[in-house]
Amino acid sequence: MIQVNDLSISFGDEPVLREINFSLEENKTLSVLGKSGCGKTTLLKSIAGIQTKYSGAVEIDGEQVDHLRPQERGVVYLYQEPLLFPHLNVEQNIGFGLKIRKTDPAVIRQKVDKMIQQLHLEGQEKKMPDQLSGGQKQRVAFGRAFIIHPKVLLLDEPFGSLDSDTRKEMQNLFIEISNTEKITTIFVTHDLKEALLTGDFFGMMHNGKLNIFENRDAFINNADTGVKEELKFWTNLTNKHVKQ
């Protein structure tokens, strides 16, 4: 599980994160809704240890990790861009984390094969990143992260650059894999539907502050999240159409 206490950062005089507090149970997904510039990337980078100049505390499985380097925290951060290693092929990219950990090659082979099946990437193993589509690249990035079973997975608008069909595909894939692999995940998005689909718990970030909702209903009913407005739009459209 992960717990964040009073996390704050300012860049110069500008506060970017203001006393962020939340905790997330093991193997659950927290969906955080937020527009660009609200501080969500800075929050994720702080938890991952890529951003180190923060005040407050981050605890993972009861242990404080603020003094630990990124490679020691067991937290994987996925950017919006897949950021695959361009000189490694699909299976080498996926197996990278295991190779670094000096895992037995036979075990790497087995785990990579299994992950490739889960990602529906059969036949693409030897391809280089520049030969893959956007969706395929993102799947490889996922596989690379999931295969090492991090303590926490941080997803920063992972499907933001994909078209709507591929996006839907990836959302379903994420739900499928996270149910199988059971990893504590924080999923940041500006897409309402995506937040609702992927989350077990919900939050909304605005101007450096994080508001956590009690449950799904509280998220839906809150005026700021925009769910009600969206529902109203589609209801009105349907009514107009019926009247015609």
Partner: peptide, 24 residues
């Protein structure tokens, strides 16, 4: 950015330079 990705995957600075950055 690739270095940041690699470090969250567990790579130490030596790995990052010789396995990722230099080959690329």
């Amino acid at each position: 950015e690739l270095a940041a990705v690699a470090s969250t995957l567990g790579a130490d600075p030596k790995d990052i330079i010789f396995r990722i950055q230099v080959p690329i």
